[in-house]
Design a protein around this nucleic acid. Sequence first.
DNA 1: GCCAACGTTGGC
DNA 2: GCCAACGTTGGC
Length: 156
Amino acid sequence: MPQRFWLFKSEPSVFSFDDLLAAPKKTTPWEGVRNYQARNTLRDGVKKGDGVLFYHSSCAVPGVAGLCTIAREAYPDPHQFDPKSDYYDPKADPADPRWLLVDVKADRKLREVVTLERIKATPALAKMDLLRRGNRLSIQPVTPAEWKAILTLGGA
DNA sequence: GCCAACGTTGGC
DNA sequence: GCCAACGTTGGC
């Protein structure tokens, strides 16, 4: 059992849970975190074996699509040093990398997407970070109780 | 260190 | 495409 739980947002038009299932070893580096708070969470909180809710954002039906585990803990994101990358950061210093990423492995798809609408309608999930006004963090902590409730709703 | 301007996120 | 909310930047 994972020790801690997180929610990672991704736009399915860019990278969906099915894309992750189709990836080699169902694993991908979680690219492009360029927010300091999210970076600090990756650095200080996210450990190998932790559970991840894969959340689809900016799409027709936002919601949790599947479950993942952390396959590799934080390491420097190579894209920050690549001038051709969208994630290039001219201020990043190879001797002191500014941005990190973790590897995420797909575990299983939920039988049905746990939609944002459903999360909002579920009292046990009323305190999820996701629902906090104006919260745009792409990486958020999830409590064990919330994790359990999402799994139940999703038919896992 | 303030704060206005600007860019991004993400639901709708 | 709109817009609210928030983060970042840069002039002073």
